[in-house]
Write a protein that binds this DNA or RNA. Structure first.
Length: 861
RNA sequence: GCCGAAGUGGUGGAAUUGGUAGACACGCCAGGCUUAGAACCUGGUGGCGCGAGUCGUGGAGGUUCGAGUCCUCUCUUCGGCACCA
């Protein structure tokens, strides 16, 4: 056996073996319990980053561990291969998106294999292949037939730089999520998925997703944003119109003293022209449209409005109420009209102060009488109604219902629920995406492509245009088609789908990746689904996870799959961080551009200046605080890389990358290696201890017991994703064996063999190449991927003696070693007779003596 | 503004259910091995104190025989939502 562990040759050897022997291939097997382990598939950007490595290491450990626990584990991998970076790269490097994408996939796949991940590559799914998107198009047509996909003119978020529309979720603080340029509004005819039909269902199930972090379900709930209230109709004075408002506070209706419409509300111009105020109103509209829509701007922007010149009638008290157009009213929410109650809403209050509008309190705290003069801000707490006719004196919560009921009798109000969630706009004016399988015919309107003609292939001869936009709208061979219905000349839809569509069902495709009679085989999907453990970044908490839940519901309702929720358990891993380094001359610098001086400071290798070491932040190219997985593997090997990312922090927390930490992980592997190589002559050929624990004594007994404890604790820790502590207990065992080695004469070889075997087995899901090599070297013919998790000898878990601590008034004063489950009175007696205890009790009689079995005695004086 | 999470040694982090705070690792210190270094092995390492001790889990209270853990208030950091009517 080599004295030193050579990661490179060992890793290469076993990777080759695994691949040749197809070790990770799985099939449905109804005799076994299945386990679907899924990691979020990557966008093939070209290279893996440390975030991927961490995500997939956690996944691989879990997959291998579950397999050792006897599950039939499916562990697939694929590529979220459509998307804009491919187009950008194609334009910048004068290549084709497909070429770029496939080259990246090739490269990243090599990297994944170098890390030794146990993927069943026969299930690889690549979303940009016609075999995949064909079925997405098919589903689109089914959804269209059910009214679940529809088209409407919509004001969309338009990014001038990317030349495309963005989903609401892709707009962050009014800026494009990718390029951060300002998002504008543009009217376009768009395809939408009716996710709002499922808003209630998606919301209700949030609380049933007990295997998800609460943080994520809360974010989804916020995103869906249900609010319960009422629609109330206001008559308009002098015009035959009704203004419908949505309010969550019908109890404050009597306090409504003005009305605010969104500037783009259709009534605004209508009213203004009726009253002759069109000029002023138009000026206001223009001003608002120029206003910034970023969160910051909104926060600081003053509430502003303009009187339309028209009054409406408060249906409760018939009061005449002026109608304003106001910058804080949003057309996208509710009805675009707000009944303003300045006494009880802060925005309305600000607005009323600015324009000297009347403020009438209608809710007052119990045992107090709130008047308009008392108010220096809106009162928004619960209370008792006043100034509200027959509702005076009622609790405001109760009044909500009563007021709506009264108005409902006259057809002026109804209970209503609104959601913040919008329908999912999926049209993208891009090339590198799934073509929308629809044809526009002048005579027949919108006609789906015949299903036999699917897929509508993305024409590969096309290339991105100079300005970066899609070639499809100008590619005659693509858009010029015959109408499937009437046979006349017609035009193909030249938009492609949002790439979140592909990732909303890839986990189903993995169940039967080659299936050519549908999206997936129902039989296979019903065997494998739901995903038992999903692992990925928290950045997908809303979009991807919500869309996937939505798609699973749609597919369930179409009878294509039996599950309704796709992901049973979710683990969101933290980010990989590293400190930022800045050279006063060169700005941000890469870690490899810095070196440590003798004094322990960092200096720039280019210019020698002292480097400011900044705080730890998420690794990003722009800050140059990145580490390339490839160089890590080259320097230390895949197993060290894997071990470090598991040991340095629990998975859900951020992981701070340090060179010292990586070296520590490497050191541990070498320590295990040396332990085995030092013992190999002695233990090789021995079988692991299977005898009676009671016959063991001395160091052998201790080691055997510690081994049993380690198997138990490591398994338990892995079950709850505490990988760092699972590794720590193995380190403890290794330390114990090391420190027992000088007592070698006592050591039972079979016990040693048992311990070494156990260490190898426990570590094998984490550092599989390393363990497989040791497994073979210690005389095993089998392949570790077929081995089961080691058995625990329960008998050895019972300690010979337990440590009972003795406290006096809660302070630790003595320790007793006692046989387990000793008689309570005897332990108390022993404690009280203890020398140190006598010193502290000082002859006093204890008031109370508390005994916790096998743990502690607390003497209260 | 609203909602949520987290604050533990010099550092990353341990501590099922309230029961020895600081496992394991990094770093540091000492010793061993070595011609020397690296590597490795052994030991030490929360603060204060020579010591018996004493103080210690962001801060202030509280419950309890006993609190990192439970309750109230508060500070800080991070994340999400946000003119949502």
């Amino acid at each position: 056996m080599e004295e030193i562990y050579n990661a490179e040759t060992v890793e290469e050897k076993w990777q080759k073996y695994w691949e040749e022997k197809d070790c990770f291939k799985v099939c449905e097997d109804k005799s076994k319990k299945k386990f679907y382990l899924l990691e979020m598939f990557p966008y093939p950007s070209g290279k893996l980053h440390m975030g991927h490595v961490r995500n997939y290491t956690i996944g691989d450990l879990t997959a291998r561990y579950k397999k050792m626990k006897g599950f039939n584990v499916i562990h697939p991998m694929g590529w979220d291969a459509f998307g804009m970076p491919a187009e950008n790269a194609a334009r910048d490097n004068n290549t084709h998106p497909a070429k770029w994408t496939y080259a990246n996939i090739d490269n990243m796949k090599k990297q994944l294999k170098r890390l030794g991940f146990s993927y069943d590559w026969s299930r690889e799914v690549t979303t940009c292949t016609p075999e995949y998107y064909r079925w997405e198009q098919w589903l689109f047509i089914q959804m269209y037939k059910k009214g679940m996909a529809y088209r409407k003119m919509a004001s969309v978020n338009w990014c001038e730089k990317c030349q495309t529309v963005l989903a609401n979720e892709q707009v962050e603080d009014g800026q494009c999520w990718r390029c951060s340029s300002e998002v504008q509004q543009k009217k376009l005819n768009q395809w939408f998925f009716k996710i709002t039909d499922y808003a209630e269902d998606l919301l209700n199930y949030c609380d049933k997703l007990t295997g998800w972090p609460e943080k994520v379900t809360t974010m989804q709930k916020n995103w869906i944003g249900k609010s319960e209230g009422a629609y109330i109709d206001f008559d308009v004075e002098g015009l035959d119109e009704k203004i419908k408002v949505f309010t969550t506070r019908p109890d404050t209706l009597y306090g409504c003293t003005f009305m605010c419409l969104a500037p783009e509300h259709p009534f605004v111009e209508k009213f203004a022209s009726a009253s002759g105020k069109l000029d002023e109103v138009k000026k206001f509209q223009e001003k608002v449209s120029r206003q910034e829509r970023t969160a910051k701007a909104i926060e600081t922007a003053e509430k502003e409005g303009v009187f339309t010149g028209v009054y409406c009638i408060n249906p409760a008290n018939k009061r005449k109420v002026p109608v304003y157009a106001a910058n804080f009213a949003l057309m996208e929410y509710g009805t675009g009209a707000v009944m303003s109650v300045p006494a009880h809403d802060q925005r309305d209050f600000d607005f009323a102060k600015k324009y000297s509008l009347e403020i009438i309190p209608v809710i007052t705290p119990k045992n107090e009488d709130l008047t308009a003069e008392d108010l220096d801000k809106a009162y928004s707490l619960p209370g008792i109604l006043k100034n509200s006719d027959e509702f005076n004196g009622k609790e405001n919560e109760a009044a909500k219902k009563l007021i709506v009921e009264k108005l409902a009798l006259e057809n002026r109000a109804e209970i209503a629920v609104t959601y913040r969630l919008r329908d999912w706009g999926i049209s993208r004016q891009r090339y590198w995406g799934t073509p929308i399988p629809m044809i526009h015919c002048e005579k027949c309107g919108i006609v789906p492509v015949n299903e036999e003609e699917l897929p509508v292939k993305l024409p590969e001869e096309a290339n991105i245009l100079e300005n970066g936009s899609s070639p499809l709208p100008v590619l005659e061979s693509f858009y010029k088609v015959k109408c499937p219905k009437c046979g006349m000349d017609a035009k193909r839809d030249t938009d492609t789908m949002d790439t979140f569509v592909e990732s909303s069902w890839y986990f189903l495709r993995y169940c039967s990746p080659g299936f050519d009679k549908g999206m997936f085989s129902k039989e296979a999907a019903d065997y494998w689904m739901p995903v038992d453990q999903y692992i990925g970044g928290v950045e997908h908490a809303v979009m991807h996870l919500l869309y996937s839940r939505y798609f699973t519901r749609v597919l369930n309702d179409l009878g294509l799959v039996s599950v309704r929720e796709p992901f049973e358990n979710l683990l969101t891993q933290g980010m990989v961080c590293k400190e930022i380094m800045r050279c006063p001359v060169h700005g941000y610098i890469y870690p490899e551009e810095a070196k440590k001086t003798d004094k322990g400071n960092m200096e720039c290798m280019i210019c020698g200046s002292a480097i400011e070491v900044g705080r730890k932040e998420k690794m990003s190219k722009s800050k140059k605080n990145v580490v390339d997985p490839n160089s890590l593997i080259n320097n230390y090997g895949a197993d060290t890389t894997r071990l470090f990312s598991l040991f340095a922090a629990p998975p859900e927390r951020d992981l701070e990358w340090t060179e010292e930490g990586v070296e520590g992980a490497n050191r541990f592997l070498n320590r295990v290696w040396r332990l085995v190589s030092g013992l190999i002559e002695e233990i090789k050929g021995s079988s692991p201890f299977r005898g009676d624990f009671d016959k063991l004594s001395g160091a052998s007994r201790d080691i055997y017991r510690k081994t049993s404890e380690t198997i138990e604790k490591a398994g338990h820790d892995i079950d709850r994703f505490h990988f760092n502590t699972a590794i720590a207990v193995v380190m403890e065992l290794v330390n114990l064996i090391y420190s027992s080695l000088d007592k070698k004469d006592d050591l039972n070889r079979e016990v040693l063999m048992h311990s070494i075997e156990s260490i190898i087995l426990i570590l094998s899901p984490m550092v599989p190449h390393f363990c497989q090599e040791l497994w073979s070297l210690t005389g095993h013919d089998s392949i570790l991927t077929e081995e089961l998790w080691p058995e625990i000898d329960k008998k050895a878990l019972v300690p010979d003696e337990v440590l009972v601590v003795v406290q006096i008034n809660g302070k630790l004063r003595a320790k007793l070693n006692i046989i387990p489950d000793a008689d309570e009175d005897e332990v108390k007696k022993l404690a009280l007779e203890n020398e140190a205890v006598i010193k502290y009790t000082d002859g006093k009689t204890p008031k109370k003596v508390i005994y916790i079995k096998n743990k502690l005695v607390n003497i209260v004086l």
